[in-house]
Design a protein around this nucleic acid. Structure first.
Lengths: 257, 257
DNA sequence: CCCCATTTTTAGATCAGTCTAATAAATTAC
DNA sequence: GTAATTTATTAGACTGATCTAAAAATGGGG
């Protein structure tokens, strides 16, 4: 019954969504400008201007007109908490309720605002404190610590052997496609060719019958770890995404809260 | 993957709450008057007047000014669906996540608006299609059929031997108290005395060391089945509330949808 | 049948989150 | 370094759910 971070302030699910988006943008090393936030949330720019001002007043982020937002410590804490909830819920839906990895995102998107901290700590225990979600993304721990995720983007990889670490794109159709061609976290493949000028990549997945050709959208959202001479130990059974601990490409912990 | 009732209209969770309350009041054979609905939802009467008019326009209930509301077939279908979701979620929280029966209501109250039909059908299967929730209340099936619940209210019972069928009061403190004195669904007890003029009941629960004295609030929300010469077969293990099928006091099915 | 207490509705307002259209600031291009 | 383009903010309005306070209908008791 590990204590989940006890809320100090209660905010609407709308606020939670804004914070999540700002965190996501900051994680991509981009400026959280009004329009960028608006695009992520699919609302009008004017709406975001208003809301960022409110969030600033609530002490959740800094806001500079004509520039954009930066999370404060408090805002970041809340955003990371949502990330943890989202990813734990995805893992729960996948492992316990048998959802496909392309189905988990949408459901978690609603549940993350509705479940209690008790619910979260119970599924955390039930899943035996998973470190990754079904897409291979790291789950922040209950204290708000996050693994540094410095994996190599497939779009930047050179020909060679790799293992898929994570896929950062939650569109169901896209994930269903990857699944169909045999690309999932923990799957090994060899990158055989890169056509020039951002052309398609040719790669051969592990069980490989057919080669697969991927364009920019796909290769930009797949992150990999190069397979060394000594390939990583076989993964614990149970799930494509239940890998634990330290492997090349995963650095140690980093404070967040 | 049994098909959950596919939504035709999508409504806000507020609307869902109004429908639930009207159903609850109708189930108690009372008139769903403005003020009664308002009390259940803890909102002002004026708010209810407005909302009932909207719900009438949406075809979810009939509304007669200065009289009150009556669910239409469509409104009833939606209300029963919420009842099913709520009770299945309670059972899930109790059986899978280890919630106490006094904890499940509050969490289910939020989740019932957030989970998808897929979620509901998955937990239904996981729980092996339970017929009762942790309080012993019948769970409507996926088609909207409900068991007729004609159990005897403890407040109206005569001295004798009984088995607790259900407890209809979701206040956590109240349930925690009942639990402490050993009163739970499927528990046998003997009603020893009834003090006159709605006075306290004296009863001795199954494992009975001490007698327990109950006032009106308690005895009015406990429903029982008299124990005949031939007491009901021992219940399947696993849960206080996993009893299945036909026993005295439970009638057969009744169409709802 | 009329008055009074209760219940209900009406009227008017608020709040959060959103929109569109118009204006203004910032940035880029030449 | 000014003009054109892009980005952001302001202004004004809407919707859904709620409130309070005032007015109106209902339903008994005499």
């Amino acid at each position: 019954m590990a204590a989940e971070s006890q809320r100090t302030t209660t905010v609407s699910s709308t606020v939670e969504d804004y914070l999540k988006v700002v965190l996501k943008i900051e994680d991509m090393k981009q400026r959280a400008s009004t329009s960028r936030v608006a695009r992520h949330l699919d609302v009008a720019d004017a709406t975001v201007t208003d809301m960022l001002r409110k969030l600033k007043k609530a002490g959740l982020l800094e806001y500079k007109p004509y520039y954009g937002a930066t999370l404060t410590r408090k805002g970041r804490r809340m955003a990371v908490r949502m990330l943890r909830r989202h990813r734990l819920l995805e893992m729960f839906l996948h492992q316990v309720l048998g959802y496909g990895w392309e189905q988990v995102h949408q459901e978690a998107e609603r549940l993350e605002h509705a479940v209690s901290d008790l619910f979260i700590s119970r599924i955390d225990a039930l899943l035996d404190y998973p470190a990754q979600d079904p897409h291979g993304e790291a789950i922040p721990d209950a204290r708000g610590f996050r693994q540094v995720e410095d994996d190599l983007c497939l779009a930047e990889a050179e020909p060679g052997s790799y293992i898929i670490r994570k896929v950062t794109n939650s569109e169901a159709e896209f994930l269903a496609y990857l699944d169909k061609v045999g690309l999932r976290p923990a799957i090994r493949f060899s990158l055989q060719e890169k056509a020039p000028f951002q052309g398609p990549l040719k790669l051969l997945p592990e069980g490989g019958r057919e080669p697969v050709y991927l364009g920019l959208e796909a290769s930009g959202s797949i992150f990999v770890v190069p397979l060394k001479q000594r390939p990583p130990a076989p993964l614990p059974e149970g799930a494509a995404s239940r890998q634990a601990g330290d492997r090349p490409g995963r650095a140690t912990e980093k404070e967040e809260a």
